[in-house]
Amino acid sequence: MRAKQKQDQLKNKITSVTGMPDEVILGASVINILGYHKLYIENYRGILEYTSCLIRIQTKQTQIRVVGKKLKIEYYTNLEMKITGDICSIEFCK
């Protein structure tokens, strides 16, 4: 078994034994969607592309693509960002 697979299995076991949320142990992103107009992303690494039609966000495990119209990053901190606009789709790309 590859080292990464073993590491992922260990993290999953720690998560289940401790009862701690995945985002804490695994560093997983948390995405909250409010209707079609607000999106909150926690645990991201950086903004890769930012236009009024496309926002690409890099996370630890994947890339998130937000597609829509009049997209705007209302705010971002080291921990969270808020995207508003007419959100048409959210895609996860490796």
Rank of each mutant, 00 (worst) to 15 (best):
V30T: 15
G35W: 00
T59G: 09
G46F: 02
S52G: 04
T84V: 13
Y76T: 10
K72G: 06
F92I: 13
K6M: 12
R45M: 09
V66N: 02
M20F: 12
K6D: 11
V66P: 00
H37F: 07
M20Q: 08
L48E: 09
R45W: 04
G46N: 10
K69L: 09
R45V: 10
K82C: 15
M81T: 12
V67E: 12
A3I: 10
V17S: 05
V66R: 02
N78Q: 13
C53L: 10
G27K: 03
L71D: 08
T62G: 00
Y36G: 09
R56C: 13
E42F: 03
L34G: 14
Q63I: 13
E74T: 15
S16V: 13
N43E: 06
N43A: 04
L48Y: 05
Y50W: 04
Y75Q: 08
L10Y: 07
M1Q: 07
L54R: 11
V67T: 15
L10E: 10
S29V: 06
L10W: 05
T15Y: 00
T62A: 08
I73F: 00
T62S: 11
K13A: 15
K4F: 05
S89T: 14
Q63H: 10
L39I: 09
Q5A: 14
Q7M: 12
K69D: 13
E74I: 14
V66L: 02
K11A: 12
